[in-house]
Design a protein around this nucleic acid. Structure first.
Lengths: 221, 221
DNA sequence: ACCTGAACACCGTTCAAGT
DNA sequence: ACCTGAACACCGTTCAAGT
């Protein structure tokens, strides 16, 4: 039930615009939402949004801020239930990243592309992004230190693993998976298995036989 | 110098539209070009393009066809000068893929996103895409067969390696690399090194010390 | 302080009319 | 057969005017 003939006129329009922008984005699947449509759906005039955001890019920045926070929370939630082994945690992080991307494809595309809003202008965006990145870096560092991942530049390896998860998620979000014989229905499992395949392939000790117990004490010359 | 007062009026407008669309796209960096601007730059009326393409998406499909062919030619050219070892060829393929993406970011984004045009409607698009994919699959298959890559589903491993190259390229194209401490100037080298890091990490025989000589003699039942 | 609604300069697309 | 240019229904953004 709306409040009579003058429903809006005031209220917390700013937040309503952000929420409706997300709704419209995920509904239409388009990267560029129409601020006029967002205004129309909220029952306000076409000029109203510009009292809260200087332009569409600023609105998209606000949307990206919230989406990045949700991605961070999703990933952190998954890690809370994960085992302690760094490699297992890395896989869990990757799975959570992929899962969130597939469930919120338009938001995922938005937060991934620095070209649709102004990343540098938003401290909260930078904070939430860095948090996930730092978690990745820390896990890779632990794995390298304990010898379960091959030695070398941590930054470089973390970048590669992030790119792997990002690439897998984006191939689905961009609609490429049909050309790789991956049925849409089990896309998530397929992508997570592909990720595990690489991580397990990189893992140092086969831990098949408890004989060797390699490195862990043999960092680098 | 333009040809007097009636420069156009006829000609091979269809091809001119495709070429100008590429120019405008790479110039503006926007995913969605304006067909009005393309027409304007060619000196034709705003309705002229629609005599050759039913809508903008069809024009973008034509652009994507040519871009995909160029990507294919670039990759095949690189492989022609590459060594014979499957793993080396896989790395070369990845490097060429990344290099082309960084040199033609807007075309790369276009061909990567099945959402900006109609992939299924274009046989040539499918042909050129499949060619690069099949080359990847064949190389992974060879490497697995000769034991330099770990055994398992070839399709899955090839998908993962393609996702790795795709993710690395896209992180740069989407503007994420500054947040990963990668200086723009040496982006390409950094990305190629990250790729090599994973491929080398997956390679089966460490061939460092002849001591262990793990598996490599345990192909498949 | 916030919102409206007309206005401006753009779009993609259509289509009668021209050559 | 190909192109023009007006027309239509949209945009993002601005801004005087309203509450």
């Amino acid at each position: 039930m709306k409040t009579a003939t003058r429903p809006y006129h005031h209220g917390h329009l700013r937040q309503a615009l952000i929420d409706m922008a997300v709704t419209v984005a995920e509904e239409t699947g388009k990267d560029l939402i129409s601020v006029r449509e967002v205004a129309r759906r909220l029952g306000v005039s076409s000029g109203a949004p510009f009292r809260h955001f200087p332009d569409r890019a600023s609105l998209m920045t606000a949307v990206a801020e919230e989406a990045t926070l949700r991605l961070r929370i999703h990933v952190e939630g998954a890690l809370r239930k994960a085992p302690a082994a760094p490699l297992e945690r890395l896989k869990t992080l990757g799975h959570a990243f992929i899962r969130w991307a597939l469930q919120h494809p338009t938001q995922f595309r938005l937060v991934s592309s620095r070209r649709l809003f102004d990343f540098d202008s938003s401290p909260s965006l930078q904070l939430h992004f860095s948090s996930v990145r730092d978690t990745t870096l820390a896990l890779v560092d632990q794995a390298v230190r304990q010898g379960t991942l091959p030695a070398g530049c941590v930054n470089e390896l973390a970048l590669a693993l992030r790119a792997l998860a990002y690439g897998l998620a984006r191939m689905q979000v961009d609609g490429q998976l049909p050309q790789w014989q991956v049925p849409m229905a089990q896309a998530e499992q397929h992508l997570c298995r592909a990720l595990d395949r690489i991580v397990d392939g990189l893992a140092q000790p086969p831990e098949r036989t408890p004989v060797a117990r390699i490195s862990a004490s043999r960092p680098r010359p």
